[in-house]
Design a protein around this nucleic acid. Structure first.
Lengths: 232, 232
DNA sequence: AAAGATGTTGCGCAGAATGGAACAAATGAA
DNA sequence: TTCATTTGTTCCATTCTGCGCAACATCTTT
């Protein structure tokens, strides 16, 4: 829970990190918690949580539902939308994703680094009912999957990840994160050399065999180049 | 900036509120700030901001762009998406909004309370090029506009706002917040009596005259009832 | 180079944040 | 109903964190 806090002695503000760890404790499967649950989940004392939560609530980062359970507050959505707007990305990325879906028939996504994980920032799903489904906003590990390797290599500078990449920066994975899914990913880097994220196409390995993957790789690389253009 | 903190002596954690006020300082027009700018904007000392920001950054609530300026971080987007999912609202609201647009030809929106303001959670724009445009995620005052009055009445319990409402809870405004815009709004309340937000239709007052407004009012009220059903 | 910003670090003191227990309020069982 | 249990808040003494501020780095600009 408070893993990150226990580390080295960099400048930090303890109570702030405790408060943030409360927010962090909310997940898709745990969208509402009682004070005691939060206390257990974070390892903080109830009295402490009570006070931290009060501040979070005042600023709209938490709110209490009719049963007085805590839920995430509207301020998060406002700021989340703002964060998202920062990337003018969206406007450039979406059309590219749709184009990729049209070309490959599979699902296309755009991932960015989020701490030591990766965040699915944008996604266009395959029209096929049998497809690799995932919500925008979902977080996956950065240490597996084609897009994961690309991010690890370009963002973290992970040398093991680098070695998995082709000279063009692309990466292929088959059944890595999920045994039934294959994927291709490529980095998106603007004219200034700034790394933005990874473009990926993924689908069931029944459809994405050797040949289909090779085709998809070309498509992804080409799209990544297009994106680089429009970001310059 | 720190208005909210200076108030009464409720349980709170000062440094946490300072940190949150840093996040609050980000706006659409100020999506990136240097440390000094944040310091000025929040009234906090630079050294203080530096340390608070370090913690926010560790948890992904802030990040630094290539020029080392601060921007909102990906954690916000993740949590924002989670917040939003809490309302299964979206899935119920969107179709209703689209239906309203079809019926009235004007823009339809759904507002929820956010602190002492109102947040435009969902919006479907009129197909007409001349329309009342506003982004999802935008915040407006709760003290003017038809939807504002509805929220003030039902959420804050503001008696002045209540007096502006019809017996059906609906409210009409003409040129209140913006001289060229008229609007109608109605509360959305589920079967348990839980208030969820305000449904509104808005457009240029040239089109939304007496008759059109009356028609829109019927449509909004009917849609609000439909929504109440699907939330029960 | 020199001058101006901008960001970070060190330090001592004030007082904020905390743990723990006692208290209050809600829930549920009997 | 009353009693037991769980959940949340308030109080208080102690401690150590967070703070202001100045000095120190680190970049920009001229």
């Amino acid at each position: 829970m408070l893993r990150r806090m226990e580390q080295m002695k960099q400048p930090r503000v303890e109570s702030v990190e405790k408060a943030l760890s409360i927010l962090e404790a909310f997940t898709k499967d745990r969208p509402a918690m009682t004070l005691t649950e939060i206390s257990v989940e974070t390892g903080l004392y109830k009295s402490n949580v009570s006070r931290l939560a009060a501040s979070l609530e005042r600023y709209g980062f938490l709110k209490r539902d009719p049963n007085r359970r805590f839920r995430l507050g509207p301020a998060l959505w406002r700021l989340g939308a703002l964060y998202r707007r920062n990337f003018e990305l969206g406007e450039s990325v979406r059309p590219v994703l749709r184009q990729l879906v049209r070309e490959t028939g599979e699902t296309a996504s755009f991932y960015v680094p989020d701490q030591d994980e990766r965040l699915c920032l944008y996604r266009e799903n395959s029209p096929d009912p049998v497809r690799h489904h995932l919500d925008e906003g979902a977080r996956l590990t950065m240490h597996s999957g084609a897009a994961g390797h690309v991010l690890a290599a370009f963002y973290l500078g992970d040398s093991k990840a680098k070695s998995r990449l082709g000279t063009d920066g692309s990466c292929v994975s088959q059944g890595e994160r999920n045994p039934h899914i294959s994927a291709v990913a490529a980095p998106v880097i603007d004219a200034n050399g700034q790394f933005h994220g990874a473009l990926a196409v993924s689908g069931p390995h029944e459809r994405l065999g050797h040949d289909a993957l090779a085709k998809a790789r070309i498509a992804v690389l080409s799209s990544a180049r297009d994106l680089s253009q429009s970001l310059a």
